[in-house]
C-alpha cells in the first residue's frame, strides 16, 4: 500500500498523537461542563439536574458514539505514546554522564511519558470509582426522595372533613420528569407498602398489570457527593489524589496543547504565539476548574 507511510513513519505517529490529543482536549471541555453542574446548583435541584444530565449522556445516541470515539482515541494516544517512547529510548542506548537539559527545554516537554502514565493511573482509579459503577455493575442507587405527605386516612363523619396523617413516602424520580410514589411507610405502625415493582435495576413495572410505567434515574450525584464527603474517611485522600492528578494533567497540557499543532505542521509566526497562549490558558483553567469541584464538595459537607 502506497499510503502505509501514513501509519509506519515516525512523523505519522506524531500526527496520531496530535490528533487524538486534541480530540481528548475537547473531551475534557465536555466533561468539565458536566462536572461544573455539581457546584452551580445545590440541593435537590442540583441533584436532579446532574442526574438528568448523566442520564442524557448515557442514552443519547450521538453521545454514545462520541464516547466510543473517546475510548479509541485514548487507547491510540496511550499505545502510540508507549511505542514512541520505546523508539526514543532506543535511539540513545548510552546516556550522557553529565547532562544539562534544563538549559534548552521545559520540564513538562521532557516528561510527557511520565505525566501521561500518571494520568492513566488516575483514569484507572477514576473509572473504577465512577464509570465502572455507572456503566458495568450498576451498583448506583436510583434517584429517590423521601417526603412526608399528609395522607388521607378517613373522613370525619360529623363534619365531612378529610382526616389526614403524616406518612413517609419514598419517591423515585421518573425519566418522564415526575416524582413517582414508590413506597409508603406508616410511621406509627412502621408498615411499608410498595406501589410498583423495579426490574433490571431501574425499570418501573405496575404490580398488577406488569406494564412498564417508567424508568428511574441513577443517582450518580449522591455517589459523587458521598465519595468526597468530609464524613467519609477516605474522602480527604480522594480529594488530594484528584487535585494532584489535575496538576499533572495541567503539566501534560502545558506542553501537549501547542505541541500538537506543531506536529500537525501548523507553525506560523502569526498564529503560533496565539496557539501557545491559548495552550497555556487551557492547561491552567481546565485542570483548575476540574480540581476545585471536589474541594468545594469536601468543604461544603
Amino acid at each position: 500500500m502506497s499510503n502505509s507511510v501514513l501509519f509506519k513513519s515516525s512523523i505519522a505517529k506524531k500526527y496520531f498523537m496530535a490528533l487524538t490529543g486534541l480530540f481528548l482536549c475537547t473531551f475534557l471541555v465536555g466533561h468539565l461542563l458536566g462536572n461544573l453542574q455539581l457546584i452551580f446548583k445545590t440541593g435537590e435541584e442540583g441533584r436532579r439536574a446532574f442526574n438528568e444530565y448523566a442520564y442524557f449522556m448515557g442514552h443519547n445516541v450521538f453521545i454514545k458514539v462520541l464516547s466510543y470515539v473517546t475510548y479509541i482515541a485514548l487507547i491510540i494516544h496511550a499505545v502510540d505514546g508507549i511505542m514512541l517512547t520505546i523508539q526514543n529510548k532506543k535511539a540513545r542506548p548510552v546516556k550522557y554522564a553529565y547532562n544539562n537539559p534544563k538549559a534548552n527545554s521545559g520540564t513538562a516537554s521532557r516528561n510527557m511519558a511520565i505525566l501521561g502514565t500518571l494520568i492513566l493511573v488516575f483514569l484507572a482509579t477514576h473509572m473504577a470509582n465512577f464509570w465502572w459503577k455507572a456503566k458495568i455493575t450498576e451498583e448506583i442507587p436510583l434517584h429517590s426522595l423521601v417526603k412526608t405527605v399528609d395522607y388521607p386516612v378517613g373522613q370525619n363523619p360529623a363534619t365531612g372533613e378529610m382526616i389526614t396523617k403524616p406518612i413517609e413516602v419514598t419517591h423515585y424520580l421518573n425519566t418522564n420528569g415526575t416524582y413517582q410514589q414508590f413506597k409508603v411507610k406508616d410511621p406509627s405502625t412502621g408498615q411499608e407498602q410498595k406501589l410498583f415493582d423495579i426490574k433490571n435495576k431501574h425499570e418501573f413495572y405496575d404490580i398488577t398489570s406488569g406494564v412498564k410505567i417508567g424508568e428511574g434515574y441513577k443517582d450518580l450525584h449522591t455517589v459523587v457527593m458521598t465519595f468526597f464527603d468530609k464524613n467519609n474517611s477516605s474522602a480527604l485522600f480522594g480529594v488530594l489524589f484528584y487535585v494532584i492528578s489535575m496538576i499533572v494533567l495541567g503539566y501534560h497540557l502545558w506542553h501537549g496543547f501547542a505541541s500538537a499543532f506543531q506536529s500537525l505542521g501548523l507553525n506560523h509566526p502569526l498564529y503560533t504565539p496565539i496557539i501557545k497562549k491559548i495552550g497555556m490558558a487551557f492547561s491552567i483553567v481546565v485542570p483548575f476548574l476540574f480540581a476545585i469541584i471536589p474541594v468545594i464538595i469536601y468543604m461544603n459537607h
Binding site: S10, K14, L84, K90, S105, G106, R110, M112, S259, S263
Partner: peptide, 18 residues
C-alpha cells in the same frame, strides 16, 4: 528522506525545542 531517517534509528520529535 524521512524513510531514511527512520531506518537510521533516530528517535521521534516531541517538540521540546532543545
Amino acid at each position: 528522506m524521512v524513510r531514511q531517517m527512520d531506518e537510521e534509528g533516530f528517535g521521534n520529535c516531541t517538540n521540546t525545542g532543545a
